[in-house]
C-alpha cells in the first residue's frame, strides 16, 4: 500500500449523488500522478464511484444529521499504484453478510457494485460493523 506521507489528497464530500462527479475527477487527477494508465484510471473511477454510491444509498437514513452525511475520500499516489479510501460515519454493516450473499448468488443490485469494485481493483478491503461506519480501502496498480 502507498505511503500516506507521500502526499495524500483528502476530500470531504457531501453524501449526495451530485458530487459523484467530483469524486471521479479527483480520482483522475491523482491517478495521473500515480503513473496509472488511462485504462487503469477509468477502472478506478468506477470503483471509487461505486463505493461512494454505496455510501449515499445505504449509509444514512432520515435520522442521520446532515453534518454526518459526508464521505471522506483519501487518495494516495505511490510509485506505480494508487490507494483510495472511501469512509463514512453511517450505519455500517457486517461485511461477512455481504460475502455470504455473494457466495449464495444473492447479490442483487448492491452486489453488482461490489462485484465491479472487486474486479476493477487489485486489492479491496472493507472495514465495517453495524453502527460503526464503513471504510473501503482499494489499491490499483499500474498495468504494464
Amino acid at each position: 500500500m502507498a505511503d500516506r506521507s507521500a502526499g495524500t489528497v483528502q476530500l470531504l464530500l457531501p453524501g449526495k449523488a451530485e458530487f459523484l462527479l467530483v469524486a471521479r475527477l479527483a480520482t483522475s487527477g491523482v491517478g495521473v500522478r500515480s503513473g496509472l494508465t488511462v485504462d487503469d484510471i477509468e477502472d478506478l473511477k468506477v470503483a471509487v464511484a461505486e463505493a461512494c454510491t454505496n455510501v449515499i444509498n445505504h449509509a444514512f437514513d432520515d435520522r442521520t444529521p446532515s453534518e454526518q452525511r459526508q464521505i471522506t475520500l483519501r487518495m494516495t499516489p505511490g510509485g506505480g499504484e494508487m490507494t483510495v479510501e472511501v469512509e463514512d460515519e453511517g450505519a455500517g454493516f457486517d461485511p461477512e453478510e455481504l460475502e455470504r450473499s455473494r457466495r449464495n448468488g444473492l447479490d442483487g443490485e448492491g452486489g453488482l457494485g461490489f462485484g465491479l469494485m472487486r474486479e476493477l481493483t487489485d486489492s479491496l478491503r472493507i472495514e465495517s460493523a453495524p453502527g460503526s461506519g464503513t471504510r473501503v480501502i482499494m489499491v490499483k496498480r499500474a498495468t504494464r
Binding site: 471521479r24 454510491t53 453488482l112 462485484g115
Partner: peptide
Amino acid sequence: TYLDSTGLG
C-alpha cells in the same frame, strides 16, 4: 463516457 452499476441496473 461513463457507466457504472446504477446505469447497468
